[in-house]
Design a protein around this nucleic acid. Sequence first.
DNA 1: AAGTGGTCTAGACCACGCC
DNA 2: GCGTGGTCTAGACCACTTC
Lengths: 237, 237
Amino acid sequence: MDNKYLTIYRDFAERIESGQLRVRTKLPSEHELTQLYGASRETVRKALNLLAENGYIQKVKGRGSFVLGVNRFEFPVSGLVSFKELAARIGKESRTRLVSLETVAPNRELADLLHIRANQPVWEVVRTRTIGGETIILDKDYLRRDLVPKLTKAICEDSIYEYLERTLDQSISFAKKVITVEEPTPEDQDLLEMKGYPMIVVVQNHVYLEDATLFQYTESRHRPDKFRFVDFARRHQ
Amino acid sequence: MDNKYLTIYRDFAERIESGQLRVRTKLPSEHELTQLYGASRETVRKALNLLAENGYIQKVKGRGSFVLGVNRFEFPVSGLVSFKELAARIGKESRTRLVSLETVAPNRELADLLHIRANQPVWEVVRTRTIGGETIILDKDYLRRDLVPKLTKAICEDSIYEYLERTLDQSISFAKKVITVEEPTPEDQDLLEMKGYPMIVVVQNHVYLEDATLFQYTESRHRPDKFRFVDFARRHQ
DNA sequence: AAGTGGTCTAGACCACGCC
DNA sequence: GCGTGGTCTAGACCACTTC
């Protein structure tokens, strides 16, 4: 039992995701929630604001908070979610295959991306993702070797994020994603079932730890017909 | 001068964007900020949390808040920003051209998307966007006619968002974006300089008002080589 | 007038980093 | 031990919606 506001948040997030709370349902008022959870109003509000920010509810001044239906049938790929978490959500049969795992010296471009010196070794992990019987995603990960001393086939085929957060005590804090569309490389053609598609969707991911050091750079290359990115955004100000 | 916490937020957001506050600079402590702005600590924290959520700063327990360099040279397309705001940011010469503006009866698919009956008329606005001399974006907007009574060529070539927020008293609250890659239609080929590219990036946008009614559906179709989507995401929990 | 959410305050205790 | 951010409280006033 950790945070009070996270408890309230997760409580409602679960009930909304499961459909137990229907779309357009009115939540209890903030005053009522303070009594239900034995919390102060600001604590309740912190939970409700998180729910609103993540697309679960809409708060309307003078009326109350209402369950939204936007996120219901979509899985937002925005936010930081590992492939394993994602695969679990969509419930499709999926598989990760390790292509190669080695320590390499970064070329200048990569050293630049990771903000390290050219002689500082990095892990290079190449993996393919098979979903519904088709191999459609190629993931290339580069991690700072000084921050991740050990890496095995088993870890790579399970979830690197999980390993980092559970085993090591590194916490991932934020990431910058860049989505572009490019021509497939011979490597893409070789490792993926491209089915003649002449382009590939590239999702670059810069992953940072809590102290804001960049420690991982990932390129996730998707066959275009299977690519789908969903984002929920609020207009502030 | 409206909100106290928004004042603090904008103050730092501007100073960070302008480069007046350098990357890795330490912000004043929360305690110091309460005195600088004559605000309580929770108010200061609300501003700092907004800055952190939007990628401006990183808060580190026990040490302080530090300026991040992630958002500096990128313009995040995540969040809700109109094309006009976007064009202003990147500073490139750009132009919007109205292709057609009419009232149509929605087909079933569109009526479904907008959650309206099939006999309820909607605005159909088709526009092309020219950036750096090339026409590379095709925007198709559908708006509920009951919510937007008037729409002119001038408004469409300026900014529909701006018109809605300033002239009408409608406030845009949130949106759901879906990015996919498809084959170009004859219309794409006709209106855009496709240069032989065999695919097109489609950004679907469902835009909601503050009372959570869906009032606009937009399809933004981008030539793949010029498409770029940047997203900043924090890992919560 | 009563109920709702939005903002703000002045305190409190805690966990963490640093010296 | 001191300064830092993270959580939480019990109140206050305001603007808005509903009746």
